[in-house]
Design a protein around this nucleic acid. Structure first.
Lengths: 135, 135
DNA sequence: GTGACTGCAAACGCTTTGCAATTGA
DNA sequence: TCAATTGCAAAGCGTTTGCAGTCAC
């Protein structure tokens, strides 16, 4: 994995804990929380500590390997950047999370830059509301 | 204030604490945090307790008198509904917060409803990025 | 008078931190 | 070897809660 190389290039070590966390992020099918990563990591490596998860996520985020997303609520979600950017429609009635392509925001992005001289950073935006399927 | 009437109609009491908190929200020029409300309330009413702030905000939110907004970061922001809906462009370089009218999102709202059968609830959305003035 | 409300203090859940022991390079 | 990294335990921080006393109505 290219992540391993990047870690070493920057002078960081590749510990088993980091390899496991990267693997979990890599295989995840959605954005996951530190708690979910911790539970999954512990299955393979029982001694792993939650603070290692947090410290690793902080490092990976700083290196640009994972994205940190605030999907609302009390905890952050993490996501392997390799998997690309997209957005989430979160239904507040049924709890469903729909993924939408980032292109949906193109016109908004243009309008903000043109009219407000503001360049939004909208990767993995969470949009709350309700899906019509619920009604 | 019509808020006072609504409280009584629903069988809630108008305590000095609640009147002060409503007044602070009413006069606020931006979204404020429970902590900010607490500090301001304490100036007028030193015995007030932080849990009263939280309980009051929860009540006012439930009654639809204030809006609860997640502007990212660790704490929620509150806002008197009377003041209308708008959005925030938060510059991650200079910290500036720009307000934009909610109409900016009209086309996105339409696209989501049309293409994804999803009705977004985007009041007081916080959009991160950077303003061109910074560069 | 009486139930809604408050202050207080303690607990909560997620996250961060200090430190001594460990380990990858 | 030896600094980076870890596990552990404790603290931090915003928020919530149980409870006994208080106060709006």
């Amino acid at each position: 994995m290219s992540c391993f190389r990047l870690l070493k290039e920057k002078g960081y070590r590749l510990t088993p804990q980091r390899a496991i966390i990267l693997d979990i992020l890599h295989r995840a099918e959605k954005h996951i929380t530190p708690e979910e990563i911790y539970e999954e990591a512990r299955a393979k490596y029982p001694e792993v500590n939650k603070s290692t998860i947090y410290r690793t996520l902080e490092l990976l985020g700083r290196l640009g390997l994972v994205d940190e997303t605030d999907l609302g609520g009390d905890r952050l979600h993490y996501h392997h950047v390799e998997k690309g950017h997209h957005h989430h429609l979160i239904c507040q009635r049924c709890g469903r999370v729909l993924d939408v392509d980032e292109k949906i925001l193109d016109s908004l992005r243009e309008a903000l830059t043109r009219d407000h001289r503001f360049v939004p950073d909208m990767r993995h935006l969470g949009i709350f509301g309700h899906c019509l399927t619920c009604e």
